[in-house]
Amino acid sequence: MSAAFSLTRTPFGRLVFVGADGTAQEAVVPVRAFALTAPDEGIALLSAEGHELVWIERLADLPPAQRTLIEEELSRREFMPVIEHILAVDSYATPSTWQIETDRGATQLLLKSEDDIRRLNGPGALLIADGNGIHYLIRDRRQLDPLSQKILKRFL
């Protein structure tokens, strides 16, 4: 199935998909079906209208060129900073502003309510939804430094 289509990038940076029937689709978007539980399994290419063009069981099965293109596009679309340290919070009651350090630099996030902290399947993994809709990931809260853990515990 993976060989039945071709994928190229236009000078405008858009992905062009040519399916088995030969018709080209511009501005296709790759999405992960299981973005959190199995990011590398089940990736779909959607047309600009949101219809599924092709289903990719496993990213690793693709030819390297296509895979790089998709991975590039995915990483450009996905923004999920990983929290490495929680430096300070202004209040233990929500809404609360956290000063954090992420893998993409220092920032602050606004936690609207404790419900926005979601436990993921992995041990100690958390997903925190910011008041602005950005999702921050904590890979394993037990691996954080003691201060961060202490702060985090008050919200769990």
């Binding site: 999405v31 079906a33 959607l46």
Partner: peptide, 25 residues
């Protein structure tokens, strides 16, 4: 996961699920 996706496809739910921020998650 394959079964879930197959069921969702048959129910014509697959595409709008893919449009959700985390897909099936």
């Amino acid at each position: 996961r394959a079964e879930i996706v197959a069921a969702a496809r048959a129910a014509h739910a697959h595409e709008f699920i893919l449009r959700q921020p985390f897909g099936y998650d």
